[in-house]
C-alpha cells in the first residue's frame, strides 16, 4: 500500500475520531455543572436523618432541573453521556457496590432505615441524569456514614441503568432506525477500497456483483463510475474511493484503484465499487460506536471498534446518492 493511501486511511479515521471527541468534549462540558450544584447543596446542608436527607434530595433535584444544561435534559443526550463514561468510572461505581460495607457497620440500624427511604428518592436522581452520579458519590462518601448509604442506593440504581445502557445500546438520532432494525448480534461484510475498510450490515446488503463492463455516462460527477447491466437492469456504480475520500482522490489514487466487485445497497440500483471483500463476521451492537449526531457524513452509522472501520448507514447513503450528493453533504 502506498503512503498516500495509508495517509488517506489515517486521516479518514482521525477525522472520525475527532468528530467523536468533539461530542465527548461537549458531554464533558456538561458534566461539571451539575455535580458542582449538587456538591454545594450537600456541603451546605447538615445531615440529621431521613427527613433532612429527603429535603436534601428534593433540593438537589431542583438544582439539577434548574441547572442551565439544556442538552442534558434530553433523554437522548443523557444516554450518550452515559455511554461516554469511561470504563474507569464504571469500575469505580462497581467497586462501590461490590466493596464490603465497612462504613455501614458503625451504624447498621440507621443505615438500613435510611437506605429504604432514600432508595425511592435515588430513582428520581438517576432518572434526571446519569452523568451526575460519579462526582456526586465522591462528595457524599466524605460527608458521613448515613450519606454513604444513600450514595450506595444511588450507585445501585445508576449501575443498573448504566449496565443496561451499555449492553442495550440505544443510540439516539440518525442511527436509531438502523439499530432497531438490527438484532443484538448481527452480521457485517467488510470490504476494502483503496486500503480503507468499510463495513455494511448484511441486512442492508443487496448483493455482490463482479465488475465487468461499466459504461461511462457523460456529465456525471467524478464519483459516478458508470452503469453496469445486471439482471436486465442498470446498476449505478459509485467510485467509492472518489465518493468517500474526494479530498484524497487524485490521478495517482485513481490509477492505483483496481475495482473488482460491486456491493449492492439494499434493493436500490446503487452499488459501491470495491477492490476486495475481506470477510463477513457477526458482531454485537455494543461493538460499534454508533453515531449520535447527524453532523457531516450521514451515511456513516458508526465505527466498528475492533476493526476500526466505518459501518455504513445504507438508507442514508442511498438517499444521498439519489440526490446526487457527495459524502460530506448532509441530507436536507
Amino acid at each position: 500500500m502506498s503512503n498516500s493511501v495509508d495517509e488517506a486511511v489515517f486521516d479518514y479515521f482521525a477525522l472520525l475520531l475527532t468528530e467523536e471527541d468533539v461530542a465527548d468534549e461537549a458531554a464533558k462540558n456538561i458534566k461539571p455543572i451539575i455535580p458542582h450544584a449538587a456538591q454545594t447543596t450537600l456541603a451546605a446542608t447538615p445531615v440529621k436523618g431521613d427527613k433532612v436527607l429527603g429535603q436534601q434530595q428534593v433540593k438537589l433535584a431542583e438544582q439539577l432541573q434548574r441547572a442551565p444544561v439544556p442538552a442534558a435534559s434530553k433523554p437522548s443526550v443523557a444516554t450518550k453521556s452515559a455511554s461516554s463514561l469511561d470504563k474507569r468510572a464504571l469500575e469505580q461505581l462497581l467497586s462501590a457496590v461490590s466493596a464490603p460495607p465497612t462504613a455501614q457497620i458503625d451504624k447498621p440500624i440507621e443505615a438500613v432505615q435510611t437506605k429504604t427511604k432514600v432508595a425511592d428518592e435515588a430513582i428520581v436522581i438517576s432518572k434526571i441524569k446519569q452523568t451526575v452520579v460519579e462526582p456526586q458519590i465522591e462528595e457524599k462518601i466524605e460527608t458521613s456514614a448515613t450519606i454513604k448509604v444513600e450514595a450506595k442506593a444511588v450507585d445501585e440504581q445508576v449501575t443498573e441503568q448504566q449496565l443496561e445502557t451499555q449492553t442495550g445500546i440505544t443510540p439516539p438520532g440518525i442511527t436509531e432506525s438502523l439499530v432497531e432494525q438490527l438484532d443484538e448480534e448481527f452480521q457485517v461484510l467488510f470490504f476494502k477500497v483503496a486500503g480503507l475498510t468499510l463495513a455494511v450490515p448484511l441486512v442492508s446488503l443487496g448483493g455482490i456483483v463482479k465488475i465487468e463492463r461499466v459504461n461511462h455516462i457523460m456529465g456525471r460527477p467524478e464519483w459516478y463510475l458508470g452503469v453496469q447491466t445486471y439482471r436486465e437492469s442498470q446498476l449505478n456504480v459509485v467510485n467509492s474511493c472518489a465518493w468517500v475520500m474526494p479530498e484524497k482522490y487524485d490521478d495517482t489514487l485513481a490509477q492505483s484503484v483496481d475495482y473488482q466487485y460491486i456491493v449492492l445497497l439494499e434493493d436500490s440500483n446503487w452499488g459501491l465499487a470495491c477492490e476486495s471483500l475481506v470477510n463477513s463476521v457477526k458482531i454485537l451492537k455494543s461493538e460499534v460506536n454508533w453515531r449520535t449526531k447527524a453532523g457531516k457524513r450521514p451515511w456513516l452509522a458508526g465505527v466498528v471498534k475492533e476493526q476500526m472501520c466505518g459501518i455504513l448507514h445504507v438508507q442514508a447513503l442511498i438517499e444521498l446518492l439519489n440526490l446526487g450528493l457527495g459524502s460530506q453533504d448532509s441530507i436536507g
Binding site: 463492463r213 459504461n215 455516462i217 457523460m218 456529465g219 456525471r220 460527477p221 459516478y224 452503469v227 447491466t229 436486465e232 437492469s233 442498470q234 449505478n236 440500483n269 446518492l321 446526487g324
Partner: peptide, 24 residues
C-alpha cells in the same frame, strides 16, 4: 441516472440494455 449537474448530463434521453450492452 439523474445525478449529473453538468450541461452534458441534460442531453441523455435515456439508456437501454441491448444484448448486454448499454445504449445511451
Amino acid at each position: 441516472p439523474n445525478v449529473g449537474t453538468e450541461e452534458s448530463a441534460k442531453f441523455i434521453q435515456g439508456v437501454s440494455n441491448r444484448d448486454n450492452e448499454l445504449l445511451i
